[in-house]
Amino acid sequence: MEKSYYNPKDLKKFGDIAEFEPKLAEKFFDYYGEVFKEGALTAREKSLIALAVAHTEQCPYCIDAYTEDALTRGVSEAQMMEAVHVGAAIKSGATLVHGVQMMNKVKKQSM
C-alpha cells in the first residue's frame, strides 16, 4: 500500500479502473467523453463548470486536471477563481439554507 491516500501519478492511471470491470468502465468513459464535447455549452464553459465542481467535491485529481484544462484554454486566473467562488457560494448557500430547517424546528418546539 502507498503511504498516502493520494498520489498525483494515479490520475494517469484512471483508465486502469477497467481492469477490474471493463464493461462499466467503458460505458463510463464513453459517457464522460460525450458530456465534455462541444454542445449547447462550449467545451470552455464545461471546463469551468468542472473546475468549480472539482472544488466543491474537493477532488485533488479533478482540481489538477481541470486547472490544467482551463490553463490550456486560455482561461484567466480571475475567471478560474470566480468559478471556484460560484462553487463555494452554492456550497455555503446549501449549508445556510438548511438553517431554515433548524429555525423551523426551534420555533416549533419553543414557547
Partner: peptide
C-alpha cells in the same frame, strides 16, 4: 508548462 488548447477556441 502546459500545452495550448484548440486554436479556433483561443
Amino acid at each position: 508548462a502546459y500545452l495550448p488548447s484548440d486554436q479556433a477556441e483561443l
